[in-house]
Every structure is written in structure tokens, then in C-alpha cells.
Design a protein around this nucleic acid. Sequence first.
DNA 1: GTATGAAATTTCAAGGTTGAAATATTTTGT
DNA 2: ACAAAATATTTCAACCTTGAAATTTCATAC
Lengths: 158, 158
Amino acid sequence: MVSGLVATIGRRSGNKERLLLWIRLLRASRMIESELRERLKRDFNSTLPRFDVMAALYRAPDGMLMSDLSRFLLVSNGNVTGIVDRLVSDGFVSRARRDGDRRTSIVTLTERGRDEFQRMARVHEDWIGDLLGDVDEADAKRLSTMLKSFRSNWEGET
Amino acid sequence: MVSGLVATIGRRSGNKERLLLWIRLLRASRMIESELRERLKRDFNSTLPRFDVMAALYRAPDGMLMSDLSRFLLVSNGNVTGIVDRLVSDGFVSRARRDGDRRTSIVTLTERGRDEFQRMARVHEDWIGDLLGDVDEADAKRLSTMLKSFRSNWEGET
DNA sequence: GTATGAAATTTCAAGGTTGAAATATTTTGT
DNA sequence: ACAAAATATTTCAACCTTGAAATTTCATAC
């Protein structure tokens, strides 16, 4: 780390390819997200973030803390507050104060929430199958595997 | 299309794999986006949408119409208005009324805007190389190719 | 030339998103 | 017991995002 060459040395080969990959990755997920948003709105008068929260809660029958939701969904705490607020006022979700620790509240799907989510999930799976129809099963698996390894290796770097 | 089997017939095989792929795709791009957002804020006091607009304008020395930007970036018209407004007030971008058609205005990067974008772009490429470091060059190319075919085949469906 | 419709943009309300500050509660150190 | 640190959540301002309505200007038909 002695000369001005450091900046150059730091560059991996293949960064151009990675940049292109990132652009296409982003573009693909934007297109799909946009289509899903439209359909969720049209058919269920809902949104993707609401769907995500309900999906998380559906898989956790005993409920989740706000911070669990936030961590699992990779979004901020304040964000979850707002989404859950609206889901509560729609009767799909309930907050229960927990004795033992009065800072936290357990969030669960209501009966109505479960029903509504099941209706959405059924269609949602078909939509994805539809939107990703060009990717055949084998490719889907390979892509999936590549993306899986893709955890947050860089967390905590400068 | 005569029986209750229709719903089942409509399903492609491999939808489970596609669903998993979608979840991982979304998760990956969320993680990367979040990291980029943080770094752009920290080092340039900027945001991803601003970066995207500037990148588009950088590649179009003669400028773009608002609607070109909107189409190219896959975001709504109203959205672009706000982002460009803020870039203008920061002196990175300028709107020029065009004679011939007074409905439109040509948006271009200012001198300062070009400089600033170049500074950002240099670092940005390294960031992506860093964040996608686990994907080797060959995989990046394959993934890229798969995602490319991924245009909007479904546009205009029900 | 004048109405009528088309096109480009802006405005606006509602919701999503973050990061930081504020609140409330629990835990820990002494 | 008490102060201080840690934890869970909410609040808030600023920005992003959409879709629909409003505005301004242009093009077309008559």
C-alpha cells in the first residue's frame, strides 16, 4: 500500500461484467415488481409491502415482534410500523401487548388476514410462474443457487 | 375448458422453482440497493434515483425529454419531475425550453453535473464489483444473458 | 379558424422508505 | 435501590413512487 497504484490494484477483473449483471438484475426485478404492484392493487386493493408482511406472519402462527418483521423483511423499523398500522386498521392483523415485556408487542394475522392472504398467495404463485415463464425449471434452479450464495458477505465493511 | 380442472391445467410445472427464484432475486437486489443507498448518501449525499437520472443524462449529451427519462428508467412521469427538480436546484441538471414545441423541455447535465457524475461512477463501479464479488466473471456473463432475455414478454396480458 | 382530440408535463394524494431522534421499558453495574 | 446502558418501538422530516387529474401546447378535422 505504498503507491498511487493501489486504486488500480484493488480492481478485480470482470467488474464490467458484474456491473452489467447488476443493471439487468435491477431492471428485471423492477419490471416484475411493477407488474405485481399493479395486479395486487387491481385484484386485492393491496400492495407488495403489505403482501410481504402478511406472508411473513402467515409462516409464523405464533406471531412476530415488530423487530423480527423488520429484520426478516430487510426494511427499517419505522417502515414496519406504518405498514402494520394500516393492516391493523383493515382488520387483517392484530397487535397484542405481551406481559413480561411491555416494550414489545406480538403481531399476528387475524382470521380475516389468513383468509385474505391465502386468496392472494394462490394467485401470486401463478403470476410469478407467468412472469418468469421464460426461465425453464433447470435454469430457475441454477439461478436460484447462484443467488443464494449471495448473502451479505460485505456486511460490516467500510 | 369444461371442468373444474382448468385451474390446475393452467399451471406450468416448475412454478415452485420460479417462486423461489423470484424471492432470491428480490432479496439480492434489495440487499445491494440498500448498501448502495447507504454509500451514495455517505460519500456523495445523494440517492440511487438521482444517480440513475444522472447516468441516463450522461450517456445522452444532447439531453433527454422528461418522457424519455421516464420510459428509460421505468418510472412514472411524476416521479421524474420531482427528482429532476431537486437536481436542478442543486445545479447538476438544467431544463431548457425548446422552441418548436413548448410543451417539452430538454434536460441535460450541467458541467458540475458531469463532474459529479464521473466522480460517482468511478466509485460506483468498484462498489458493484465488491458487492458482486462472489460471482465470478463466467457466472456473471451467464446470469446476465439469462436476465437479458427477460424483457417484458407479458406486457399487455390480462 | 375553431373545436376536438392528442401529447408532454406538472400537480396532488396516498403510501412506501430511510435514518435519526424521541419514548418507554427492561437490564446491568455498583 | 439507582443510575446508566441496552432494547423495542414510534415519531418525524425528507425523499421516492404511483396513478389519476389538471394544465399547457400542439395537431387535426371540418
